[in-house]
Design a protein around this nucleic acid. Sequence first.
DNA 1: CCCCATGTTGTAGG
DNA 2: TCCTACAACATGGG
Length: 260
Amino acid sequence: MPELPDVETFRRYVNATALHQRIAGVQVREKRVLDGVTARRLQHAFKDRRFEATDRRGKYLFIHTDGEAVLVLHFGMTGSLEYEKEREPDEHDCVLFDFEGGYRLAYICQRLLGKVTLTESVERFTRKNQLGPDALDVSQDEFAAILESSKTPVKSCLMDQKRIAGVGNIYSDEILFQSRVSPRHRSNMLEKNQQKRLYRQMHRVLTMAIERQADPSKLPSSWLLPHREKGESCPRCRGEVARGKVGGRSAYWCPRCQGE
DNA sequence: CCCCATGTTGTAGG
DNA sequence: TCCTACAACATGGG
């Protein structure tokens, strides 16, 4: 799930549900998702506080409170959030925020590849982790400069969180498909018009996915993602979808539309 | 047993 | 310094 559109959907979900209520308690049921913070410190930071506002940078969700600490959530490959009254803890619930009144926000992470931590500010966190500009925030000129600064395959460049924050394996395939650029094309060898298409499509794909709450079943069938399987037929030319390794990750693309 | 999976980090080598 | 490949983390599905 969790690339930029998913995390943005979680952010809006938190805004719509979990703000402005006193936190009666914090339960850490799985310590392995804590990153450089103890369960005790989390409890101390959030008990009797209220979540007041949210922020997102790339795949990271930040939740501000009426206190000093900012909660940082990363979702790994299988993380999610659920807000529910009298929620019975599920086996994959890792951290629970209990609000007065009986509602509960659960941070769920099956594979434990996500991270929960604290920071004093979004600025400080993004600097420390060298996060690049958010994919929905970057300017066209900045984006072009990023592409030109790297000899790596363009797919790897799009997915490099230090260069551009928010795009992962799934959505990079869609952006490349919509732009008709091969995932293996060297980032610094793109023509100006290819750079432009990538910029435009990155924005379009991510915002359309957000509008659909990042729900794969709601994505247009004209997109690659519903056909992202080896041997499926390309929704554009009916050619065969290829699968290959790019930068250590599986890439799916249409060689006829996008090139080898 | 094998392979695969929406992510990140660390190591080794060219 | 930059880039690539690979393993590790942990869990589950086919």
